[in-house]
């Protein structure tokens, strides 16, 4: 692997649901240390993209290379390789305690001491979770559940974190806190992040680079700050006319 090849490289990816084409020849890449955002409307194929990279959805053609290697076919092996998805709608194990949820996040790791270190990082970022360690996941508020979903993914010590709509169903003030935490994960812990979001302005503000996905095709790409200024993006995704 050459030094400047991307951590994640998606090439001409085509994905079908039944007979319907959900992603049509998508190309994108994520370099180590980046936050990359994919923005797009409902049904643009954002979740399909995430599910495909996490190997819970199979693709028709194209290639997904992680660290120069083709993606494994099985979700649990992809996690072992270092890609962890925070799924849409959080999908906390509601009957299990916060602690058990976190332990599941660390399912692929065996070194207790390293897991304790990750736990400390998580408590520093989300002190609320430490207070609620023995509470059932289902009793947490929406924002706390999203924190738990991210923390649970961190427990696997991923090299690439996939976030599917982290703002979904959260109050605006909670969304801000969530995005602050995501930026911290990247800046302070050096985590590489690929995030898909409907909330385009927030996503563009925090990311290094972004792609615009429309009906299964990448329409635009560029630096987040540039896309924020782009006329078409402003009209279609930021609700700014002018």
């Amino acid at each position: 692997m050459s030094a400047n090849s991307p951590l994640l490289d998606v090439q001409n990816l085509v994905v079908h649901y039944g007979g319907i084409c959900a992603l049509n020849s998508v190309n994108l890449h994520v370099d180590s240390g980046e936050i990359v955002a994919v923005i797009g409307a409902n049904g643009a194929g954002k979740s399909t993209l995430m599910r495909t990279i996490a190997a819970v959805k199979t693709f028709t053609s194209g290639a997904v290379l992680f660290n120069g290697q083709p993606l494994k076919k099985d979700a649990s092996r992809v996690v072992r390789d270092g890609i962890t998805l925070v799924p849409e709608g959080r999908r906390i194990f509601a009957p299990l305690t916060v602690r058990e949820n976190l332990m599941l996040g660390a399912y692929t790791r065996s070194d207790r001491k390293e897991q304790e270190e990750t736990l400390e990082e998580i408590y520093a970022l989300f002190p609320r979770l430490k207070e609620r360690l023995h509470q059932r996941g289902g009793t947490l508020s929406g924002g706390e559940q999203q924190m738990l979903a991210v923390a649970r993914a961190m427990m696997s010590k991923p090299r690439l974190l996939l976030l599917d709509e982290p703002s979904l169903g959260l109050a605006p003030i909670v969304i801000d806190a969530m995005f602050d935490a995501i930026v911290k994960l990247n800046r302070e812990l050096g985590l590489t992040i690929l995030v898909v979001e409907q909330n385009a302005s927030l996503a563009l503000e925090m990311c290094h680079r972004a792609y615009v996905l429309e009906t299964g095709t990448i329409r635009m790409e560029g630096r987040g700050s540039d896309l924020l200024q782009d006329k078409r993006v402003m009209e279609s995704y930021l609700g700014i006319t002018g």
Partner: peptide, 14 residues
């Protein structure tokens, strides 16, 4: 038993 898909996202092999 709660959510087999999310379990596999945690690295649990189905």
């Amino acid at each position: 038993s709660i959510d087999i898909m999310t379990a596999s996202l945690m690295g649990v092999n189905n």
